[in-house]
Design a protein around this nucleic acid. Structure first.
Length: 371
DNA sequence: GACACGTGGCT
DNA sequence: TAGCCAAGTGT
């Protein structure tokens, strides 16, 4: 594998750096995290933006900062509250790692962020990208970063072949990014590269006529912008079928908190067990009874909610149940709690589970006064 | 290296 | 519409 960068002589470097930075200064979007130099706020934006679109992140970022205004405030908060603030944003391990990293920064670094990519990389949730982003944007280190945007831009500028995930391709992209970021304003340059990928050098129908580095782009010169980079090969989603217990009592329903790892880790749910796709109601009731460690009676299926995740096709069967003993704890769940809908709305819950809960409530499982 | 991990927007 | 995609990380 070659790590040198033969296509990047000094002249080529200058022909990309300067126009891209100048373009960024003219055309950058006014995003809220571009108005702060606070490392904590920049870190938060970078984590929220992982695999998530800018327009989705903005309101979350603002609410989260209002609720947890400093790394110390975040470190001191219960994980449950952090997950509640993350509710609906997806990839919840990001919130768990964010919380852990805040505690490590507070405990090991006296509340001050490490300022180099190398040191940041030791914190939970900091991979190569996020370490480079925070180091360059918040601390001005000449640290490279490669995200999906940068990979696309550099693939086209330098005609980097290979599929996403290919080791030689990744090494080449990081080497190019590392050579390009050397110089003035590394944070702005990295953002320029990403901004360019997001708005001009788009995946489909890139706006080459508006491109500030068109003359330096090998893909443009050879008519290959449409075929670079090749699309990711995605596995077909696996089926996951869950039976959910809808157990009314007074104006409450039973809720459970999931184990901290895996799908929807640490989030609240209607108590759920996995069942075979075509499993009969009686089997689902038996599984739920075992998980909740109490006898229970099935009172019919209230409905089914389907959700498509990236790697999962989720089917949620809502099973109305009741029983003589109301459980308050069970080994299969972190915690059990009886909540009104109003209380449940404050819990950290996945969007998938929220849809299921809404469907159950729409069936009138609780008295009107509780809704 | 492959896979798990969410969600909403866009075409 | 169904599929693709987005400022990735952890195991």
């Amino acid at each position: 594998m070659t790590l040198d960068v033969p296509a990047l002589d000094a002249g080529r470097l200058a022909a990309i750096r300067a126009p891209l930075l100048a373009w960024y200064d003219r055309q950058k979007r006014d995003l809220p995290w571009r108005r702060t130099k606070e490392p904590y706020a920049i870190w938060l934006s970078e984590v929220m933006l992982q695999q998530t679109q800018v327009s989705t992140v903005i309101p979350y970022w603002e609410r989260f900062l209002a609720r947890f205004p400093s790394v110390q405030a975040l470190a001191a908060a219960p994980l449950e509250d952090v997950l509640a603030a993350w509710k609906g944003l997806g990839y919840y391990s990001r919130a768990r790692n964010l919380h852990r990293a805040a505690q490590e920064v507070t405990a090991q670094f006296g509340g001050r962020f490490p300022s180099t990519a190398k040191a940041l990389l030791t914190l939970p949730g900091f991979g190569r990208y996020t370490a480079g982003a925070v180091a360059s944007i918040a601390f001005g280190e000449e640290a490279p970063l490669v995200d999906g945007n940068v990979a696309r831009v550099l693939s086209r500028l330098f005609v980097v072949e290979g599929l996403p995930g290919d080791r030689a391709r990744e090494a080449r992209l990081w080497a190019l990014a590392g050579a390009l970021v050397k110089g003035e304003r590394p944070g702005d340059f990295n953002q320029a590269l990403m901004e360019h990928g997001a708005t001009v050098c788009r995946p489909e129908r890139p706006l080459c006529l508006l491109c500030p580095v068109r003359e330096a782009c090998l893909a443009y010169q050879t008519g290959r912008t449409a075929e670079l980079p090749p699309a990711k090969v995605r596995a077909t989603p696996k089926l996951l079928t869950l039976a959910l217990a809808v157990w009314p009592h007074g104006d409450t329903l039973l809720f459970a908190r999931r184990a901290e790892k895996g799908l929807f880790g640490g989030l609240w749910e209607l108590p759920a067990v996995e069942v075979a796709p075509g499993a009969p109601e009686a089997e689902a009731a038996t599984r739920l009874s075992e998980a909740l460690e109490v006898p229970l009676t099935a009172q019919g299926v209230l409905g089914t909610v389907k959700r498509q995740l990236t790697h999962r096709a989720l089917t949620l069967h809502l099973l109305r149940v009741t029983g003589p003993q109301r459980p308050s704890r069970a080994a299969a769940f972190h915690e059990l709690r009886w909540c009104t809908p109003a209380q449940a709305s404050e819990l950290g819950m996945s969007t998938a589970m929220q849809r299921a809960l809404d469907a159950a409530l729409a069936k009138g499982v609780l008295p009107d006064v509780a809704r």
